[in-house]
Design a protein around this nucleic acid. Structure first.
Lengths: 190, 190
DNA sequence: GAAACTTGTAATCGATTGATTACTTACAGA
DNA sequence: TCTGTAAGTAATCAATCGATTACAAGTTTC
């Protein structure tokens, strides 16, 4: 297989693994196994685990921004905010994508990862303010809702959806629609 | 020194370290050094690193709930939501407290830590709904804002406050007041 | 006053892990 | 066909880390 294809394969696998176990908790061996290659190959292709994680973050942000821009451009009857919000929840179906970003967001203290994470977060904010036409208040509320969704996903709160009425109430309030996207994530993990 | 005092000392130090480096990224040796004791002492007092982290989470949640209940009981001119919100931001001054919780929130996949984190999160939700009298929508918005604040703290976004106009705008929107609490966290980290 | 318990540490061990080295195989171009 | 380069792995190393053991010093209790 060509290197570029293998690269994308590894990045996809790494996104899922980083999303599950975080940056430090992820081993290059587990990523390699998930991608179906040997551990030294992962290290050689990306240099270090840190660079692999950074590429995972950049790729996730790129997918996110592309989805936002597509949602903004596709004018159906809904408002732009609603379209972008739905596009965001749809990203949850890509295993680990939102969670890898979230894991990056809590590593702001790391001088390298932190800089990438901050830049990525502000990139989203700038999109909302300039391209999507949100005012500061709207952008803040959108990001707030997104961070709650990320937290609920990270907590695997979906696993308690059937058993706990509080979870149902909270998730229905946090996800006015597309709740089924998150509920589909249940049981599929190891 | 008595064991109970030493215990609280270690928990406080561990909260700061876990907040900085996360659960996996924290070593018992660093916690021990921050607390001024030997590494084996930390392990023996808490059994395992996992149990230490869980105690850190429980302690953080206890402090948070106590602060919320105190804010709810103290009736000044403000609304209950505003009082509790201010109490939340005030907790950011306790190094690592909100961030340790956040690190727990993204480890929902861990069967032990995840269960504790979910229980803690729902405990806060239940407080908002029953004791504080929020409806589901208000509770969701409160938690959303809290998660955004946690993310901004985790990102160390405060460090770019002076240099980046977007950061100032976003943080002023996310923190209608008590912004100075977060800004005071700058520069104080290693 | 000595047995029993608490507080605390030094030394160390076994397991894990990111990274390196050396090697093999497949293939494209001259 | 010969050669160089890309794709890929097995073996292994050096460092880190959580945990254990053994031990020292102080305090309580009978």
């Amino acid at each position: 297989m060509k290197g570029d294809d293998r690269r994308e394969l590894i990045l996809e696998a790494a996104t899922a693994v980083f999303g599950d176990y975080g940056y430090v908790g992820t081993t290059t061996a587990v990523v390699a196994k998930a991608a179906g290659v040997s551990q030294p190959y992962v290290v050689r292709m990306f240099g270090t685990k840190q660079q692999l994680f950074i590429e995972v973050l950049r790729r996730a942000l790129g997918i996110l921004m592309a989805a936002f821009r597509a949602a903004l451009a596709t004018d159906n009857g809904e408002t732009a905010g609603r379209r972008i919000g739905i596009a965001y929840v749809d990203l949850a179906s890509q295993r680990g994508l939102l969670l890898s970003l979230m894991h990056g967001f809590v590593l702001g203290k790391d001088p390298v990862i932190g800089a990438v994470a901050r830049e990525g977060f502000l990139c989203v904010y700038e999109f909302l303010r300039t391209e999507a036409g949100f005012d500061a208040e709207e952008a803040q509320q959108f990001l707030s809702g997104g961070m709650l969704i990320n937290t609920l996903v990270g907590l695997r709160m979906t696993d308690d959806y059937d058993a706990d009425a509080r979870v149902r109430e909270l998730m229905q309030a946090a996800l006015p629609e597309k709740l089924d996207i998150l509920l589909a994530l249940r049981e599929s993990s190891v």
